[in-house]
């Protein structure tokens, strides 16, 4: 594992893998869209609106998964001060915020026809909105200090504190009365989704995972190059000063 944690090696690996990942992501989105929009039946209660599930649920999963990764990256940044962990954390929060936004917006568009409202302040929806603000807060803190390292450390602490929100989101539908329904997939007695609707959902979930991975690697590679650019400019600036002095 430590071999890939070397920034230079990571850079070469990402450059080689990314074109393949992009192709795979596009293909799985095509397959997912075909299954979700064309090759799956309407639901017995919800009719065609069930198709919103195929984007809403994977987006919500990715929003939570990205936050878990953000927590892990922040922990290893604080403990081992590893540069790649910092870069991963910095790359993750905009991606996670995007997925959270998608989950909130599609959930709202699903709630209006089925529940009769775009939004309610129940425990699930409220804790998910908090997740969005945690991502925004992480992005803001990274830029809030002139000293980059102070920004990174405070952002990492915020990300770790925000980890307590993950179990709250997950179990809110079991612990409290909510308008949002309980989980359909991760149930003790197996998923309560018919296979004809489970397959489109899982295919979309694969596509969303691949998108997360692709976007993450692309952003990490860019951030590494930006760090190199800063270092080169600094070196050149110092060389110029030495010439003049």
């Amino acid at each position: 594992m430590h071999r890939f944690a070397n920034p230079g090696r990571f850079q070469r690996l990402a450059t080689r893998v990314l074109p393949w990942l992009k192709g795979l992501t596009a293909l799985s989105f095509l397959a997912g869209l075909y299954l979700a929009l064309l090759a799956s039946p309407p639901d017995y209660q919800q009719g065609e609106t069930v198709r919103i599930m195929y984007v809403h649920v994977p987006a919500a999963w990715m929003a939570l998964f990205a936050y878990l990764l953000l927590g892990l990256a922040s922990a290893s940044s604080l403990i081992w001060r590893h540069p790649l962990a910092d870069i991963a954390a910095q790359a993750l929060s905009p991606i996670g915020a995007a997925f959270t936004l998608v989950a909130l917006a599609t959930g709202s568009l699903w709630g209006k026809p089925m529940w009769g409202t775009y939004w309610v302040w129940d425990a699930r929806l409220t804790s998910f909105l908090l997740l969005f603000f945690l991502y925004l807060g992480h992005m803001a803190l990274l830029d809030a200090f002139d000293d980059r390292n102070r920004g990174r450390r405070s952002a990492a602490v915020l990300a770790l504190v925000g980890l307590v929100n993950l179990p709250i989101i997950k179990f809110s539908v079991d612990w409290w009365n909510t308008l949002h329904q309980p989980a359909s997939i991760t149930r003790m007695d197996g998923p309560s989704i018919d296979p004809s609707m489970l397959w489109p959902l899982l295919t979309m979930a694969v596509a969303f995972h691949l998108f997360l991975l692709t976007a993450l690697l692309e952003r990490m590679r860019t951030l590494l190059m930006e760090a190199r650019l800063r270092a080169q400019r600094q070196a050149r600036f110092e060389a110029m000063q030495a010439e003049q002095g």
């Binding site: 929009l37 309407p42 009719g47 065609e48 609106t49 198709r51 919103i52 984007v55 809403h56 987006a59 995007a98 936004l101 998608v102 917006a105 599609t106 568009l109 699903w110 209006k112 026809p113 998108f211």
Partner: peptide, 19 residues
Amino acid sequence: MGGYAEFVWPAYGVTGLVL
């Protein structure tokens, strides 16, 4: 979309746009 076009298509649209 069985009368739900105004909800299903914007949901896919907003997903596509944000990603």
